Simulated scan of single mutants.
Amino acid sequence: MNTTFKNFFFISVSIVLLSNCVSKKDIVYFQFDEIDQSKVSNKYLTFFKPDDLLEITISAKDVDAVRPFNLSAVTYSTSSNSAIGVAQKQTYLIDADGEVEIPILGKIKLGGLTRENGIALLKEKLSPDYIINPHINIRIVNFKISVLGDVAMPGNYVIPNERITIIDAIGLAGDLNISGNRENVLVIREENGMKVKYRINLLSNDTFISPVYYLQQNDVVIVEQNYAKIQSASANTNTGLFISLTAVLIGLLNILTR
């Protein structure tokens, strides 16, 4: 085989193989920028939203006074009309208008409020007419986030303590695949009834001051494939054909040039 064409063949194959390679600088987290400690905060706010399922616990020294507000949810047998299983805490669903139906108090608008503001509102409604110095805790039972795209284990994840960072979410999903685009991770969040998109670069330390560093319930994290992966998907389809045709072409040219 002619040396020139032999070199051409090996160069062509090398180009195809190298197109699948990913540089180290494309996958190492937090390699750019310094962390601006003055902007880093460990505070995060939980805002109540429609479709949140709330567990509201009210306590006070007067046990009898709080009993009507701490109803238990039980299942009854249709035959004996008796309770089945262990009674569980009653939950309250925030409707499309942001309201929940609280025993005795009626409809209370909690949607759009932070936990602190929601607790303050309930205290205002309860004290002093119904309960003196009530202690209130509100927990979102169905707090979840979704991680989709080029990660090891995409899916929905329930977060029991309502505190999760985007780094935690990626960890739950088994980390990004090597082919995941770390520079342009998409977070979709619902704000005031609208879907809002945020972009975050996991290669930069600015991640720690991003408004989506702390995720909120129902946030969706989407990891796209990087450019090399997209290109290789196209290249892999035609690689075998390309090499075969190149080999045939080289063979023919080699015969013609003898």
Rank of each mutant, 00 (worst) to 15 (best):
R139E: 11
G180M: 00
K49C: 03
T239A: 14
Y227N: 13
T91K: 12
N177T: 06
D64L: 10
L71I: 09
T91N: 13
F47K: 07
Q225G: 08
V248Q: 08
K43M: 09
I132R: 05
G149K: 04
N205D: 09
S234F: 12
G180F: 00
P154E: 04
V212W: 02
L71Q: 09
V13E: 07
T46R: 05
S77Y: 11
S77M: 08
T246S: 12
A87L: 06
N137P: 04
G85Y: 04
A247I: 10
N20I: 02
V151N: 03
I222N: 06
V212M: 11
L45N: 08
D26V: 05
P68R: 06
T207N: 00
E224G: 12
A73K: 13
T237G: 08
I145R: 00
D150F: 00
T46V: 15
I222W: 07
D26W: 02
I230C: 05
S234K: 10
I108Q: 10
R163C: 13
L53D: 00
S19I: 01
S59H: 00
G193H: 06
Y76D: 08
S232M: 08
K89G: 06
S234L: 14
S127V: 02
L71G: 10
Q31Y: 02
L252V: 15
G106W: 03
R67W: 12
Q225F: 09
K25G: 15
S80K: 09
N117T: 06
I56R: 02
S127P: 01
I84C: 09
G118L: 04
G240D: 15
N42F: 13
R163I: 12
A60Q: 07
K123N: 14
I132D: 07
T91L: 14
I222S: 12
F143Y: 14
I188W: 01
N42H: 13
V147L: 03
K144N: 13
T237V: 15
I164K: 01
L53P: 00
S38V: 06
P160N: 08
A233L: 13
I167K: 05
Q225D: 08
I94W: 04
S12Y: 15
A152C: 02
K195P: 07
S41V: 11
N205I: 14
F69A: 02
G106C: 03
A83G: 03
Q231S: 11
N2H: 09
Q216N: 12
V212E: 02
N117L: 15
V223T: 05
I102K: 03
S77P: 07
I164N: 00
L253C: 09
K61W: 02
S79H: 10
N184L: 14
R258T: 14
L202P: 02
